[in-house]
Design a protein around this nucleic acid. Sequence first.
DNA 1: TTGCACAATGGCAACGTTAACATTTGGGCG
DNA 2: CGCCCAAATGTTAACGTTGCCATTGTGCAA
Lengths: 334, 334
Amino acid sequence: MAAVKKSVSVKDVARLAGVSEQTVSRTVHDSPSVRPETKERVRAAMRELGYRPNFAGRSLRRGKFKTVGVAMFNITGTGNLDRMEGFAAAADKHGYAITLTKVDGHPYTLESASSRMSALPVDGMVVIMNRMPADFGTFEPLPGMQTVLVTMLEHPLCSTVDNDQFDCSRQVVEYLLGQGHKTVHFISCPERSLSGMQREEGWRETLRAHDIEPPRLIRGDWTAQSGYAAGQALADDPTCTAIYASNDAMAYGCIRGLESRGKRVPQDVSVVGVDDSLGDIVPDRRLTTVRFDNKRVGMWAVDKIAGAEGVAPSVEHMLIPGVLIEGDTVRSLR
Amino acid sequence: MAAVKKSVSVKDVARLAGVSEQTVSRTVHDSPSVRPETKERVRAAMRELGYRPNFAGRSLRRGKFKTVGVAMFNITGTGNLDRMEGFAAAADKHGYAITLTKVDGHPYTLESASSRMSALPVDGMVVIMNRMPADFGTFEPLPGMQTVLVTMLEHPLCSTVDNDQFDCSRQVVEYLLGQGHKTVHFISCPERSLSGMQREEGWRETLRAHDIEPPRLIRGDWTAQSGYAAGQALADDPTCTAIYASNDAMAYGCIRGLESRGKRVPQDVSVVGVDDSLGDIVPDRRLTTVRFDNKRVGMWAVDKIAGAEGVAPSVEHMLIPGVLIEGDTVRSLR
DNA sequence: TTGCACAATGGCAACGTTAACATTTGGGCG
DNA sequence: CGCCCAAATGTTAACGTTGCCATTGTGCAA
C-alpha cells in the first residue's frame, strides 16, 4: 500500500519509461513523431504512476488558461440556469472550462466584476448585467482580457449579447393587434430591471408605430400576486381586451385576478406573458408567451471568447430573438 | 497610446521601482518586513504598469489553485441554481473560485466526472448526482483530490451531502396523520430519480411505522400534467383525503385535477407538495410544501473542500433537513 | 569601540511544462 | 562506401512566483 506523497510530473514518467521529458510531453500531445512502441511504453508508465498533467505548469508555459470567467451579481435569476447551460456547452465545444464568480453588487459596477476576475485563471470574461452599472459608460476592459457583457445595451469596447427584449414586445403587440385588439395593456416591472424597461419601451414604441396611444401601464414586481392585483384592476376597464405582462408569473396571476372578477380568459380578455416558465406548472392551460433562447445567449458569449484563439478580438453586438408561443389565452376578435 | 504587448510580471515592476523581485512579491502580500515608503513606491510601479499577479506562476509555486470544481451531469435541474448560490457563497468566503463543468452522462459514472476534472486547475471537486452512477460502489477519488458527492447515499471514500429526502417524507406524512387523516396517498416520480425514490421510501416507511399499509401510489413524471391525471384518478377514491406529491408542479396539477372532478382543496382533499417552487407563481393559494435549503447543501460541499486547507481530509456525511411550510391546502380533520 | 540583534532587502532556485533547437540513428541513393 | 535526409529522440531555457537563505544597514548595550 504505497502512499502517494506528491504529484507525479513528466520527469517521473520519463525516468520510469527511460525516455526524455520531451518525449513524454510529445506522447501526451500524441505527436506523430514518436514511435508507436515508445508511445506505448510512455503510456504504460503514465498509467502506472497515475500521471495527470499539471494545469499550472502548462498554463504558465502556454500563457493561456483555456478558461472563461463568468461574473454574476445575482446567481439566482430567471434564465440563468439556461445561460449556464449555454456557457458550459460552448466551453465544452472549445475545450474550455467555466469559472463562476459571484460579485458583490455594492457598488454595482463593471469595475468590481473585472477586478474580481483579474486574479483568476481566465482568458476572458462574461458579465451578466441585470441592472445598469454605475460605470457602464466609462468602463474599460482589462488589457488582454476579452470581455463580453450580457445586456441589450451596446458598449463601445466590449462585445454584448442578450435576448432581444424590444423585438419581444414588438412581436407580442403586433400579434395581439393582428388578432383585432384595439390596444394592448401592459403590466410592467420594477424600474431598475434593464430587460423589463426594454420590454416596456418596445411595447410603447410598437403601439405608437400603429398610432395607438399607449394606455396607462400597471407596475408590478414580477410576482403573481402583483399580477393578480393588476388583473383585478384591469377587469373593470372596458377598453381592456388584451393584456401583455412582463413575465409569466404576473400573466398567470393576472388571469386569476381577472377570473376573480368574473372575466374569462380568453373569451373576455386575452393575456400574453414572457418567459415560458409555466409550461410544466399549470396543467390545464397553455399560456401564450415568448420563449427566449438563453442557452444560445450563453453559447454566443463563450464562443466569442473561446473561439477567438489568437484572432484579433472584435467588438460585436448580438441580439437573439425570442419565439412567440401560441397558447390558449388569446382570442381573435376577427 | 502605448500598446500593451505582453503581461506584466514582478520583474517589470521590480525594475521600475528599483527593488528586487522579492520585495515586489512581499509588497503584494503586504509583508510587514517592507518599509512603508518602499511599499508605496512598489505599489506606484504596479499601478503604472497595470500589474496583475499571474495565476499560473502562483499556483505552480504554491501547488494550490484555490478553486473547487463542480461537475454536473445536468445543469438544468430543480435546486441547481440555489446550490450554485451556495457554492459561490462558500467559495467566496474562503477566497476560492468555482469551476463549472458539464459532464456527458454516457456513461453515467463518477469516473467520467473525475477524469474530466483531473486536467483542470482545481484542488477538490463536487459531483452532483441525480441518478445512480454505474460505478458508485467501486469509485475511488483521484489521489490528492478531495471529492464531495451531492447525494443522500453514503460513500466509503467520499464525503456526501444532500437534502434529507427521507426526513422530508417523514415530516409530511406525520403532519398529515397528525391532522387526523387515516392515510396518505402518494404521487411519485420516474424511478431513475434518486431523490424521488428516497421520498417514496420515506413515505412508505413512515406509514408502516404507524401500522398503515401504504396505498397504491401513482407514478408521475414531475410535470403538472401527470399530477392532473393523478388528481383525477384519486378524486374517485373515497379513502383518499390526503395526497402527498413528489414535487410542487405535480401537487398543483393534482389540485386542478381534483377540482376538475368536483373535489375542493382543502375541504375535501388535502394536498402537500415538495420544492416550494410555486411561491411566486400561483397568486391566490399557498401550497403546503417542504422547502429545502439547497444553498446550504452547496455551501457545505464547498466548505468541506475549501475549509480543509491542509487538514487531513475526513469522510463525512451530511443531511440537511427541509422545512415544512404550512399553506392553504391542508385541512385538519380533528 | 566592538559586538550583536534585528530590520530591510537581495539572490537563487524550484515548481511542471513545452517550444526551439540540437543530436543521434537508420536508410536510401549516387 | 560515403553522403545526405528524415525520423526519432534529447537538451536547454523560459514562463511568473515565492520560500529559503544570504547580505546589508542601523541602533543599542556592553
